[in-house]
Computed example of a mutant assay.
Amino acid sequence: MKKYFKEFDYPLFITYFLLSVFGLVMIYSAGMMSAVNRNQGEPELFYKKQLLNVSIGLIFFAVGVTIPYKKYAKKRAMQLLIGSTAVLLLAVHFIGVSPGNSGAQSWLDLWKVRFQPSEYAKLTTIICLSVFLANLDKRGTIDSIKSYKPFVFLFAALIFSLYLEPDMGAILLFGTIVLIIILSSNISMKTISKGLILLTPFIIIGVIVAISKGLLTEKRLGRLSAFTNPFEDAENFGLQIINGYYAIGLGGVQGAGLGQSVMKLGYIPEPHTDFIMAIISEELGAVGVLIVLGGLGFIVLRAFVIGIRSRDPLARLMAIGIGSWIGVQTFVNIGGLSGLIPLTGVTLPFISYGGTSLVFLSFAMGLLINISMFVKKERKTI
């Protein structure tokens, strides 16, 4: 591995690290009032917890960057990833908790550590699907519909588990990421079309059953209504979106100054989580927003470039999968805040408060840099 570390991707690491530190600062600023109001806590409550999360994330990053990405293609590694994901997603339905007002039983409390299995599942899905498609490509059966039965079964089980929580934001993310990885493989459009035709009846039945079983709860219908016109329900479901608009408007170009947000003083609930970009906009203006989006955009583009440059299908799919994860999650978060799509409660990568998300994104960044090192070394040997 020493010869590969000479190709360490410093720009990628520096961007990831600075975004995590920037998120730490903004969590301190945005979460002060929420921390004080929560059981008369101290203002630094969320900051201290996220500082610990960043530290653990760096350890996971080191693990991700050290283990060669090809190790994940081994049978035992695949069995461990799939098995552990299945156990955790199953456990959440029996001993899971629903923190705050999320309404979703999607967390586990393990030895005083709160853990969200769906975040782990994002990482394992990217790795396992990449290995699966790369193996099909190697065997020359990537265009055989029958070859996809194991994946379709496992993915259907994953989506069903997320529906039972329920976590619609995660389902949207998983579906989009998986589609991007499949489109990035060597599978032909003819095979993709056949697969979609075969799956369409099952998708329609699934949607009908989900709706009939209470998928469209009052809260979700309210979010859909607020998405179309938040001002029609300004006192209820539209309130958070409207206050987010106010925060963006108050910030202007340069912002009111770090720590000077008004909307975090009870107008936006839990502003340090999925609505943290509204506080960034208010305090640091369009400049702060562009810095965050620029950093995240750089990571996404670099991940895609790494994937495109690789001659190894496994490296290509893993890199593009990680880039898709960060890119899609950023779009869903900003889209909900700006009114482009309905609110889902999805956090902003590296910036929002949340240990599970940051830790596994950190591991993914380590894996991405590991792939980058191998790709650079590979290109030098041509």
Rank of each mutant, 00 (worst) to 15 (best):
F5A: 04
E7Q: 15
E7Y: 06
F13R: 07
F13D: 02
Y16N: 00
L18H: 14
G23K: 14
G23Y: 03
G31R: 01
N37P: 04
R38F: 14
Q40N: 13
G41D: 11
L45T: 07
F46Q: 00
F46G: 01
Y47N: 06
K48R: 14
N53L: 04
G57W: 09
G57M: 12
G57P: 02
Y69I: 05
K70Y: 15
Y72S: 03
Y72R: 06
A77W: 15
L81M: 15
I82C: 10
S84P: 14
A86N: 03
A91V: 03
H93M: 02
H93N: 02
I95P: 07
G96R: 09
G103F: 12
A104L: 10
S106N: 06
S106F: 07
S106Y: 08
S106R: 15
D109F: 08
F115E: 08
F115T: 03
Q116H: 01
T125F: 09
I127T: 13
I127R: 10
L133K: 03
L136P: 01
L136Q: 02
T141K: 13
T141P: 00
I145V: 15
S147E: 02
S147A: 13
L154W: 15
F155K: 11
F155G: 01
I159P: 01
Y163N: 02
P166R: 10
G169K: 00
A170G: 13
A170W: 13
T176Q: 05
V178P: 03
I181S: 00
L183R: 14
K190N: 12
I197T: 02
L198A: 07
L199K: 09
T200H: 11
P201A: 11
G206K: 08
I208Q: 14
I208T: 13
V209L: 07
I211F: 00
S212L: 04
K213N: 08
G214V: 07
L215Q: 00
L216W: 09
L216I: 15
K219V: 01
K219W: 09
R223V: 05
S225V: 12
A226M: 00
E232P: 04
D233G: 02
A234C: 09
E235H: 01
F237C: 14
L239Y: 05
Y246F: 14
V253M: 03
G255T: 15
A256H: 03
L258K: 08
Q260V: 12
P269N: 13
P271Q: 08
D274G: 04
I279F: 11
I280Y: 05
G285R: 12
A286M: 12
G288F: 14
G288Y: 10
V292C: 06
G295R: 07
L296V: 10
F298V: 01
L301D: 03
I306R: 03
S310C: 11
R311S: 12
D312K: 08
L314G: 01
R316K: 15
R316H: 03
R316V: 07
G323T: 04
I326L: 13
V328A: 00
T330M: 00
N333P: 09
S338M: 10
I341N: 11
I341D: 09
L343Q: 12
V346T: 02
V346P: 06
T347A: 14
P349C: 02
P349Y: 08
S357W: 10
L358K: 10
G366T: 05
G366L: 12
N370T: 00
S372F: 04
F374I: 03
E378H: 06
